[in-house]
Amino acid sequence: MPEKDKRILILGVGNILFTDEGFGVRVAEELEQKYVFSDNVTVLDGGTLGLKLMGPIMESDYLIIVDIVLNEGEPGEIFRLLGEDLNKACAFKNSLHQTDLLDTLAQCSIIGNVPDDVVLFGIEPVNYKDMSAALSPELEARLPQMEALVLEEVEAAGGSHTLRTDKNPATEKIYVPRDTSRNS
């Protein structure tokens, strides 16, 4: 399949009510607010939907997941994980959604339709247990770097993007804004 025909899904997952647990969703929100993507790219706030994400996942050819991972790294360290490394990173039970994500990918596989390419951009959290709509300052500072990595992956997969302007503002509403006042 030509690169430009690949259906690319950027899937930000997590729970925005538990500090860094919402990092993946916040990345998806930022991308949606700042960029217009080519028709073959979809940005999705997957929240903690688990098995309800099967449809969008099975309809994609290239899946880019953004989430927190416990990968024995330093807080704020970013990882690009594939294959078995992705499975190990998603297997921890300290998250409200991680096991669901593995189960969802497994169910898609059983049905016989998993994207050819699955990439997880994970970041080591600082705090994913306290209830807050704010990211930790360390992860807040990493948002631009993660956005850039995801955009590079989209381009490598055959997608494109342009910056939004006043003439093409985002139509997606953010219902629970980040509390960045806690990070100053």
Rank of each mutant, 00 (worst) to 15 (best):
S60Q: 01
L63R: 01
I65Y: 07
I65A: 04
N71C: 09
N71D: 10
E72F: 11
E74D: 11
E74S: 12
E74N: 12
G76V: 05
G76F: 05
F79I: 02
L82M: 07
G83E: 13
E84R: 12
D85G: 06
C90Y: 07
F92T: 12
D100T: 04
D103M: 11
L105Q: 02
L105Y: 02
A106N: 10
Q107I: 11
I110V: 15
I111V: 12
G112E: 07
G112D: 09
P115T: 00
V118G: 02
V119D: 00
L120Q: 02
F121K: 03
E124H: 06
V126N: 05
V126K: 11
Y128G: 00
K129Y: 13
K129P: 00
D130Q: 14
S132L: 02
A133P: 14
P137Q: 02
L139H: 01
L143N: 01
Q145H: 11
E147D: 08
A148E: 15
L149N: 07
V150I: 14
V150N: 04
E152G: 02
V154E: 09
E155W: 00
S160L: 07
S160T: 15
H161C: 13
L163E: 15
L163V: 06
T165L: 04
N168H: 07
N168V: 09
A170F: 07
T171Q: 15
K173P: 06
K173R: 15
